[in-house]
Design a protein around this nucleic acid. Structure first.
Lengths: 395, 395
DNA sequence: GGGCATTCCTCCGGAGAACGCACTAATAAG
DNA sequence: CTTATTAGTGCGTTCTCCGGAGGAATGCCC
């Protein structure tokens, strides 16, 4: 039988060592530079062991001893510690966010700090491979701009604005024209030569808000993304939940109107046909002597425009109705409203009102509603977070 | 500083050993008696290590070498293995299932095999403490009947037919009269002197079907319980999901009819008011010259009675409608239909039809619909499974 | 019946991991 | 300068796991 370098054939003791190494590195990444003694205290390992693990990390270039010494243990006396910091010069990941009209790429260090970022306009009706070519070039130049090569990166997180099959990694047809029969992860992996993981915008938005946004530290929440489409990302028990085949959170096609418009999904009266951003703009347009954009709508809302507030409030109540059913089933402690209009107060208030009206009292009482904190950068932040999480799985 | 015998001060190596010991014991409990070689294969540990761990377990009285030898590795030759089995003479747990008209109590060994069981009729309108007294007596006598004392049991799992607050462990008011202001876990713990964990019937039904029923080995499924009330238990990512405050799965109060009957939850047209078992009996009653029971309805269905089939099919389609929305969000691979009517084919077919009609095609294609396998013993089986899981957490 | 292959299990020696202890290093306080 | 305190590191010990050798118990084939 040929030798296989699986994770599985590592011995238990090596796993233990690796787990402890990860624990130390994790503490360095999350809590910043620390002394070995601090690390020993926070990990529960002995000082000796931590010393040895730190030495390992330093030899592998994953950590460095900083030049400046720390204060000698708050207030008291004693030898000042030598601080150890996680290296940011190597490692790192890239994130790629493909939108309907843009490609955003960022390179971040292994703790998620963005080092270089760029956005370029793109027509999604282009064949997907042209967009992927462009993204590939952007990754290369941004990697260089942050002082590394693509090969130094430990992985790429890709955000696509469509459901993606978890097994085949194929984009579900019909939503993104020009991407048919394309497996974007494989394509990118071939172009860049490093691992690529992909997920949709709602899931990655949720991941981003969990790690760096409005849902920081919240174990069970729903991230609502209201944009061209309507989708939800679920974080359950502290982890992103993707379902059995990776298409959980497809809330956009709940039937909300018995005889509503026909949806691209062939059903009618879907949530998405009634409250998508294009639909809301279309509803507002006739009343204003201008072509409305999202920014203009937000400005009008800030000025107190009654029509805009009314339409946003209605939209919030409509999605809130669907969210109420979801919350009754899921019992989350937070709903984060994301997408371009996520910061609009009437939308959030509408959602709140419907939850109070349609969800069980106990469910409604348990759930908070908040605007997303990351705005247009939610997707790229989530893509980076996913890439880091994946990389962490492999030592 | 005084010495503290915390879990925490165990050294990493001891933890490793303990984890491996648990892995071996777990394999023995879930997959039954096995040879050491089988254990090595399933745990991924070396044969040597497994041998040593098994010796540990035997010395601690947690496992025994069985007298009968196994077959020598299916078909082939070779030395026949010495089978190792988890001990059932000690440990064990109790399960208590409180229904609207009965109390069922069972004592099981640590692998979930029921050793003694009893059901007694009870009027739930009694004060809850009377019911708990009775359950306490039943546990005592059943423990004795299985050759142990209550103090030998490692814990109790309690099933109540109502949502239960995860923090206060209080039953949500209004549903079970006579249980107001009662904390059943505390009450039982005081009476019996061993740890008590409680959950509702839908969650425990789901747990039971996961471990010993139609959902064995399925990571993501919805257990629908259709009885006096309507509820769902969710297993997501292989674990029972309870939500942020423990009331996930409350699917019974989705509004399904705009101007339907007023529900006990003060809303109207709730799923529960339209398809609960009493409601279905009430719908059927006028057409038959007898007082209908669940058993009679099932018999009529088996005979091919058109009216019964029609009503059950309609009920299935109605809950299926609500389940379709849930499945769109959760993307499970299975829906298990439980409760007294769970085995009725038209009900299951109705659910299937609504999923195909109302859920996203990809979601509907990913989900199977099946009858529950455990019938009226689902709750007690789940209560036992929960008690075992809790006990396993403490080494 | 006598090899022979096969599988199961255990003993043994070795390697790796974590730990406690003892020691040095570096500072503050008196 | 001495003492107290904290930080970091060699060293020997203990614990754990593993692979290989070898005995044990079977089926298969001649």
């Amino acid at each position: 039988m040929p030798y296989r370098a699986d994770m599985a054939d590592r011995t238990s003791l090596e796993r233990l060592r690796a787990a402890n190494r990860r624990a130390v590195l994790g503490a360095l990444l999350t809590d910043g530079p620390q002394s070995r003694a601090d690390l020993a205290r926070s990990t529960g390992l002995s000082r000796t062991t931590v010393s040895s693990l730190v030495q390992d990390l330093i030899e592998h270039g994953l950590a460095v001893e900083t030049t400046d010494r720390g204060r000698p243990h708050k207030g008291g006396s004693g030898r000042p510690p030598l601080l150890v910091a996680a290296t940011s010069a190597r490692g790192g990941v890239a994130g790629i966010d493909i939108g309907h009209h843009h490609v955003r790429v960022a390179v971040a260090d292994r703790s998620g700090v963005v080092l270089a970022e760029d956005v370029q306009p793109v027509d999604v009706d282009d064949h997907g491979s042209a967009t992927l070519d462009r993204a590939t070039r952007m990754v290369r130049s941004l990697a260089r701009a942050s002082g590394r090569e693509v090969a130094d990166l430990r992985g790429v997180g890709l955000c696509v604005p469509a459901p993606i099959d978890r097994r085949s990694a194929q984009i579900r047809s019909g939503i993104l024209p020009g991407w048919h029969d394309l497996v974007p992860t494989d394509e990118l992996q071939e172009r860049l030569g490093i691992p690529v993981a992909a997920d949709n915008d709602a899931n990655l938005g949720a991941l981003a808000e969990l790690h760096h946004g409005a849902a920081h530290g919240v174990g069970d929440f729903v991230y609502l993304k209201l944009a061209s489409g309507v989708g939800a990302g679920l974080v359950l028990g502290g982890r992103l939940y993707r379902g059995a085949t990776g298409i959980a959170g497809e809330i956009g096609h709940v039937q909300i109107l018995e005889h509503g418009r026909v949806c691209r999904c062939t059903n009618r009266g879907c949530l998405e046909t009634e409250v998508s951003v294009p639909r809301l703009l279309e509803l507002l347009e006739p009343a204003y002597d201008e072509t409305l954009t999202v920014d203009r709508v937000l400005a009008l809302e800030a000025e107190g425009d009654a029509g805009v507030r009314r339409v946003l409030g209605d939209a919030g109540r409509t999605v809130g109705r669907a969210l109420a059913d979801l919350c009754n089933s899921i019992n989350p402690s937070l709903v984060v409203v994301g997408g371009p209009l996520g910061s609009a107060a009437p939308l959030v208030e509408g959602v709140r009102a419907s939850l109070d009206r349609y969800a069980q009292p106990a469910t409604a009482a348990a759930v908070r509603v908040a605007s997303a904190a990351l705005g247009a950068r939610a997707e790229i932040t989530g893509a980076i977070a996913m890439a880091i999480a994946r990389a962490a799985l492999e030592e």
